[in-house]
Amino acid sequence: MVERHVLGISGGRDSAALAVYMRQHHPELDIDYFFTDTGKELPEVYEFLGRLEGFLGKPILRLNPERDFDFWLREYNNFLPSPQTRWCTRQLKIKPFEEWVRPFVKAGDIVNSYVAIRSDEDYREGYVSAQENLQIHLPFRTAGIDKAAVGEILEAAGIGLPEYYRWRSRSGCTFCFYQQKIEWARLLDEHPEAFAEAQRYEKTAMEHGSPFSWSHGESLDSLARPERLRQIRIDHEKRVARVLARRPVNALVNDMPMDLDEVYGQGKVCVTCHK
């Protein structure tokens, strides 16, 4: 029997910080780091993975090299994923992980999987294993590490945050349906070619009878109109102003960058993709 240790990297801050934490606090463990690639990640995600690999001193295994988003979109007859039908999470994130560890579990190995659920996320649970020898561990929850501590871990390691946090709150696909309207507007600013690709997917999906658009309640064509973009930005600035008005008068706090979670609330997210 072999005891294995695995840790999934999403391209977000929490899982990256957990990888750093485990490397620093448990150097005796030979951890296999993996990333389930949808084929539609932001360029900033790949750059961040490279930085993280430099710190860890070992490569992050890329799962899912063949069956990417385009493959599964065809399998689902061009119907877009949505909060109601999250086939993207199942097929592009969970299934590749299960297929990767299945031979280990079948051989009787103990597989320890480390998941980056923080201590301030009591309402969240990670992947639930149905296999007795696939054991899930939540080190951050055990150690009392919260969101602020995650940022400190990455800064102290010289890695910092992924560049996309400058304009977006989540990792994952460029066209994740959990994005806020302002994030779609900023995707158009930062990566217009990715926004255009999302528009093409949406149009094809509608032609095939898909009831869902990427952004709740409107198409990307509608969202991309100049007057609509202007309104989205105005609404966002109003939200930011309300948050700033509620902040205590504290120079250190007021100098902190505005987190979109603070503006819009935590909201619904896919833990598998966004940690």
Rank of each mutant, 00 (worst) to 15 (best):
R4L: 00
R4E: 03
G8R: 00
G11Q: 06
G12T: 01
S15E: 04
A16D: 00
V20D: 07
R23I: 07
R23F: 09
H25S: 13
E28S: 13
I31A: 00
I31S: 02
Y33A: 04
Y33T: 01
F34N: 08
L42H: 07
E44W: 07
V45N: 02
E47Y: 09
E53W: 05
L56W: 01
N64I: 06
E66P: 04
R67H: 12
D68R: 15
F71I: 07
L73I: 13
Q84G: 10
R90Y: 14
Q91Y: 05
L92R: 01
P96W: 00
W100E: 01
V101T: 09
F104H: 13
V105F: 02
G108K: 06
I110Q: 12
I110P: 05
V111I: 09
A116I: 01
I117S: 00
D120A: 07
Y123P: 00
V128C: 06
S129A: 11
F140R: 03
E152V: 08
I153S: 03
G158T: 09
G160T: 08
R168F: 11
S169Q: 08
R170G: 04
C173W: 11
F177M: 11
Q179E: 00
A185G: 14
A185R: 14
F195I: 05
A196F: 08
A198W: 08
A198G: 08
Y201F: 15
T204Y: 04
S215D: 13
E227R: 02
E227Y: 01
R228F: 03
R228E: 04
D235P: 09
R247N: 14
R247A: 15
R247I: 10
A251G: 05
V253M: 09
N254F: 11
P257S: 03
L260E: 13
D261A: 03
Q266G: 09
G267P: 00
K268F: 02
C270S: 14
H274W: 07
K275M: 13
